[in-house]
């Protein structure tokens, strides 16, 4: 069960560039901050600035408790104004951290093989999941974990060190500078036949194009797959209905679900790719 979220003042302990346009934030939080479940996210905002107004959603990349504090790691890509300002935060600056929020990944007891599929910074929530699998769950020994990580170039395979040595690892780059030359879904397609559909679970996070191609790839298989989705958010807590995705509801009915509250993790089969437009 997810613990109760809170709003906390965090202090930036370290802000490190890990690749061009990518940075790793380490934030110290009060011990009372609830333990996140992999796939959950936080909303962060610089309280010393009037703008940007809205907090930005970022997945939990790492979380530990030490020396009377909770330590949160976030792996971020500069996408626009808000993330660009975060990338320039100095250690010692404060951030408000709202969370942990949303519904994370769920791993059924019958799963024997986990495949982690990530594009770019989509690796962040999966690295946290791996951390939890490796270090805390006693029954995880019976599970194989294989990660398929893709990015534009070798340099942009951020978070690689969080996978190396902890699971089987396959990498793909668009320019062929590391691992498979092509995208991560194509690489996965080559291996897919080797996995037993009944006991395999895919957990994925990445750009919408990757998720879409994954959906097409898995359509004829029985392999379960959960994906973490992104949408623009305002509140992050389910109140504004701003962050919805179209979901199939069965019997030809469709509806919108909140990424922040009903997700961000959804079963890939739930996503409605061509929803009817309603006024």
């Amino acid at each position: 069960m997810a613990e109760k979220p809170s709003i906390a003042i965090g202090q930036v302990m370290e802000n490190r560039s890990v690749a061009p346009g990518h940075f790793l934030l380490t934030i110290r939080l009060p011990l009372s901050f609830a333990t996140p479940i992999p796939g959950q996210f936080v909303m962060i905002r610089d309280p010393d600035r009037d703008e940007p107004l809205l907090p930005r959603p970022i997945s939990v990349y790492g979380f530990q408790r030490e020396d009377g504090h909770a330590i949160l790691n976030l792996l971020c890509r500069v996408a626009g104004r808000g993330t660009s300002l975060f990338s320039r935060l100095n250690s010692g600056s404060t951030l408000t951290v709202l969370g942990p929020l949303g519904r994370g990944f769920t791993i059924d007891p019958d799963v024997r093989q986990i495949l982690l599929v990530a594009g770019g910074v989509g690796a962040a929530p999966l690295a946290f999941l791996l951390q939890e699998c490796v270090f805390s769950k006693p029954h995880s020994a019976k599970r194989q974990v294989t990660a398929y990580l893709g990015a534009g170039t070798a340099e942009l395979l951020t978070g690689l060190n969080r996978f190396e040595g902890f699971c089987n690892l396959r990498t793909a780059t668009d320019d062929g500078s590391c691992g498979y030359h092509g995208n991560v879904t194509e690489m996965l397609a080559l291996d897919l036949g080797e996995y037993d559909a009944k006991s395999t679970l895919i957990l994925a996070c990445g750009p919408m194009a990757m998720i879409r191609s994954l959906d097409l790839l898995l359509r004829d298989t029985r392999i379960r797959c959960q994906v973490s989705l992104e949408e623009r958010m305002a509140c992050g807590v389910g109140a504004c209905l701003g962050c919805v995705v179209a979901i199939k509801e069965g019997e030809g009915r469709n509806g919108y679900r909140r990424v922040c509250h009903d997700g961000p993790v959804f079963d890939i089969g739930e996503i409605h790719w061509n929803p009817p437009v309603e006024g």
Binding site: E51, P52, L54, R232, C240, G242, V244, Y256, E278
Partner: peptide, 23 residues
Amino acid sequence: RAGNPPPRIMETRCGMLNAVGLQ
């Protein structure tokens, strides 16, 4: 009511636009 399709919100200078459509 299902409301409008996404994207439904956009931050603007000192404000935000929403088109939730009364979901």
